[in-house]
Computed example of a mutant assay.
Amino acid sequence: MPSRRHVSALAVLALGGLLLTGCAADSSSSGGPDESGSSGSDSNSRDMNTATDQTVAEACADLQEGLSASTSALQEGVSELSADPNAAVEKLNAFVVEFAEVRNGLGNAEVKAQADSAGVAFEELVAQAQAAAADPAALDMNAFMETTQNVQTELTAIGEVCAAG
């Protein structure tokens, strides 16, 4: 049954979103000494839209902070997929938009590049979910699962960049 498999694949995606926030939290707490080298008031008053020279830890912290609310929207979208696929796709689209806004505010080139790669993967996944909501019978589960795996790979790569920073 495609809709159950679809829900299952998106549940994996939601866990990937949690992986992203978890890795960012780990890196920001382990990067604490790095941040303490800069002015404490500076890190508290950072404006993500004007940041141009962030450390990896700062960019990862901004990424985590910016996505904390939208990760719950991602989870809600997943949970609604079987009951109301169009509402689910709307929430997934909202996540993609917010993720783009957060990425655009990052001032560390390494973190931003990896986050942008993850953003492209998310956009592809949401496009496939939208097509499946419109015509569930046309869902190519192999392609969908491959795209889901790509999202997980990209999120893992963000975690690796953040952990290394």
Rank of each mutant, 00 (worst) to 15 (best):
M1I: 10
M1W: 08
P2G: 10
P2S: 14
P2M: 09
P2Q: 10
H6I: 01
V7N: 05
A9Q: 02
L10W: 15
A11N: 12
L15W: 02
G16Q: 11
L18K: 05
L19I: 03
L19M: 12
T21G: 10
G22C: 00
C23T: 12
A24D: 03
A25Y: 04
D26H: 03
S27Y: 00
S28W: 06
S30L: 08
S30V: 04
G32A: 14
D34W: 04
E35A: 15
S36F: 15
S36Q: 15
G37M: 14
G37C: 13
S38Y: 14
S39E: 11
G40Q: 09
G40P: 02
D42E: 11
D42S: 13
N44L: 14
M48G: 08
N49K: 13
T50Q: 13
A51Y: 06
A51Q: 11
T52W: 03
V56F: 04
V56L: 02
V56P: 03
A59E: 05
A61Y: 04
A61W: 07
A61K: 13
D62V: 08
L67H: 01
S68I: 08
A69W: 01
A69N: 06
A69L: 09
A69M: 01
S70V: 00
T71D: 01
S72P: 00
A73D: 10
A73K: 10
Q75A: 15
V78C: 13
E80L: 15
L81Q: 12
A83Y: 11
D84G: 09
P85F: 03
N86V: 11
A87R: 14
A87N: 14
A88I: 11
A88Y: 06
V89G: 06
E90C: 01
E90F: 05
L92H: 10
L92C: 08
N93D: 14
A94I: 00
F95S: 01
V96N: 13
E98Q: 08
F99T: 04
F99E: 08
A100S: 12
G105I: 00
L106S: 06
G107Q: 05
N108E: 08
A113W: 02
Q114G: 08
A118M: 09
A118S: 14
A121C: 07
F122E: 08
F122L: 14
E123H: 07
A127K: 02
A127T: 13
A127V: 03
A129E: 09
A129L: 11
A129G: 10
Q130S: 15
A131C: 09
A131G: 11
A131D: 14
D135T: 13
P136F: 08
A137S: 15
A137I: 02
A138T: 09
D140H: 06
A143C: 01
F144M: 05
F144Q: 04
M145V: 13
M145W: 01
M145H: 05
E146L: 05
T147G: 02
T147Y: 03
V151G: 00
Q152D: 07
E154R: 12
L155R: 04
A157K: 15
G159Q: 03
G159C: 15
E160V: 09
E160R: 13
V161P: 01
V161F: 01
A163F: 02
A164W: 01
A164L: 05
A164N: 12
G165C: 00
